[in-house]
Design a protein around this nucleic acid. Structure first.
Lengths: 342, 342
DNA sequence: ACATAAAAGTGTACCGGTTCCACTTATTTT
DNA sequence: AAAATAAGTGGAACCGGTACACTTTTATGT
């Protein structure tokens, strides 16, 4: 455990002033003779000198750190998003501070306070839907805020990157209708979430286009966390005229719903056709292989990082940007054709 | 976009000196009159003042940030580990800087350089196995380094937290032997990895105890990334006397191996019994439900964070700590009893 | 009432970089 | 050869907090 050398140590050993060392450290900030540069570099190597980021950040706000505030990294969707965001950021020389909210307002506000104190240049987040004042404050402070996957309607001035939830749910539902299903259930996110609402809207649109009756009993909202998804599935199956097809549009609850269906001994797709919003590799391994809505996580990540750094990079456009990317419907074997027996 | 208030602005508006404001900010660092404290707090709120972490960190090395350097967060095991580590750290008021190496030496060394410059107090990492000099340097600098899940034999002085790989593989193999299997294959991590070696060793031990012949053809190493796992599976199945049971001990390659088995039309467990090192929820959803070795990720995370902060917290013990936690063998339906037909 | 101790508050050096400006020396221009 | 210009370097202020040494105010004891 040695004491760390500072720029002054380097300067002294190299026999130059700190200003020169600083110029060697930041090429382009001023002239340095070739010979001097070499000597200083050698000394830095010998001493094991590394400039402290903290000192550097003191002078300017650091465009070198991004906050990534997710609900929960154990959810594969967020995990992959985190992975891509980190890669994208690293490619730009940016570091990522990872925080989780567990969908908890209180935790979210604490994490945001920390991010403010760190003066991060941008934040990519899946907001809980509360803490409006803090989000506003962040923006006033000049932090680039980007909501990914979800949005908060009462904060229309924030950039948003997400899949086209309406269209995804619409096409999934339309596929089921095209296979002859007339009773199509849907489990989506909380009614309060933009994601949940948009998906339900797409679902309704598809039913309407197909000329199918809408039954509120077939629409269920499930919270992001906990076993709400399972309960919703059980409820759907126990109604008088149960669905013959199901769209599981609450990404966070997919495994929970499937577990419940499996335990209930439901035959897929014999008794129930299923389409899920989930693109992990295991959906292909199941019997039957699941028909899924695949979210282009790479694109979400790339756009998010880009937006989160855009203002910093000079592009201070006024209008908030809403980027919607298309999701892909991957047909496998969990959707069956229904024969009109009744 | 307003300019940020500093501690001096607060002091001036509140009509006190900066020292008093600093004391209000750090309770316990000195006496402040109740009335003054209230006034200062009000001013801070009104001005929207937030102390800058960077300035604080300049004075002392920050025990407020941890580096988490993982191979790849899209792997569910690492994702869950990240999730828990972040939670544990947050519970202690510590932030986590997430970085990924993609198993690439070069990237790893760049990330480590960044972590050095940030003067993080601790690093939790899944090392690639190279960059020995940098790891050494980190330790000399007083950074608490903890390897999780893997270790580097040539760096024996680094703390390690992992499951008991030997025992896990031994018990999984023993279970198969107890079910009458005599040709048991294993796919494990690279021969160069500690994880891979330990698991193979446990496997051998189990075979020996059961009095079974060891056949090198039944032992396959697969790289962490790419489709090496699938190739290993194919190779295993095409040998002259193929195995009737398989232990997939390369966590990173489980889905790849299963996909290959599925495409090959292998009946599980009829033709091949399978035990995998993987504890994601989906392993229960498959048909048949998979018998798995469950890694206690919560414990791994808790111990890692604790070790990564231990030196900072004063406990400068000399000996490197090796913490091995027991993994749990969860029996489901992918292992069948073999009847001695030959 | 007066000494004395405790509480409250102030001034300022310091952490480790960056950068502006002044200064010296070498090179080019006319 | 004198003057103008450019290249290389050094000194010191500054960023925004923290903490030590010190002064002033208030409370306590006899």
């Amino acid at each position: 455990m040695q004491k760390q050398p500072t720029i002054r140590d380097v300067a002294q050993v190299a026999g130059v002033s700190v200003a020169v060392v600083s110029r060697v450290l930041n090429p382009g900030s001023g002239p340095v003779a070739e010979a001097t540069r070499g000597r200083v570099n050698d000394v830095m190597k010998n001493l094991g000198y590394h400039p402290r980021t903290a000192a550097r950040e003191l002078k300017f706000g650091p465009p070198t750190t991004l906050g990534l505030l997710l609900a929960d990294v154990s959810n594969p969707f967020f995990a992959r998003l985190a992975d891509r965001v980190v890669q994208e950021a690293h490619a730009r020389g940016i570091q990522v501070l990872l925080m989780t909210t567990q969908e908890d307002d209180q935790l979210e506000s604490e994490r945001l306070a920390t991010l403010i104190e760190r003066r991060v240049s941008g934040i990519i987040a899946t907001p809980t839907g509360n803490n409006l004042a803090i989000w506003k404050q962040l923006q006033d402070l000049g932090t680039d805020v980007v909501f990914v996957d979800r949005s908060i309607p009462s904060l229309p001035e924030v950039d948003v990157v997400s899949i086209d939830n309406f269209e995804s749910a619409r096409s999934a539902t339309a596929l089921l209708a095209a296979h002859g299903h007339r009773r199509i259930g849907i489990i989506s996110g909380p009614a309060a979430s933009s994601t949940g609402r948009d998906r339900i809207a797409g679902y309704r649109q598809a039913l309407e286009t197909a000329g199918l009756e809408q039954d509120e009993l077939l629409i269920r909202h499930a919270a992001f966390r906990g076993s709400a998804g399972g309960d919703a599935a059980s409820a759907l199956l126990s109604i008088e005229e149960p669905p013959t097809a199901l769209v599981v549009a609450n990404t966070a609850q997919v495994t929970e719903v499937l577990r419940r269906l499996s335990h209930a001994g439901i035959d897929i797709p014999g008794t129930l056709s299923v389409i899920v919003f989930e693109d992990s590799p295991w959906t292909e391994l199941m019997t039957p292989a699941l028909t899924i809505v695949r979210q282009p996580i790479d694109l979400l990540a790339r756009h998010s990082v880009q937006l989160a750094l855009s203002n910093t990079q000079g592009k201070t456009s006024g209008e908030p940007k809403i980027i919607r990317v298309a999701a892909e419907l991957v047909e496998r074997s969990s959707v069956a054709r229904v024969h009109f027996t009744k």
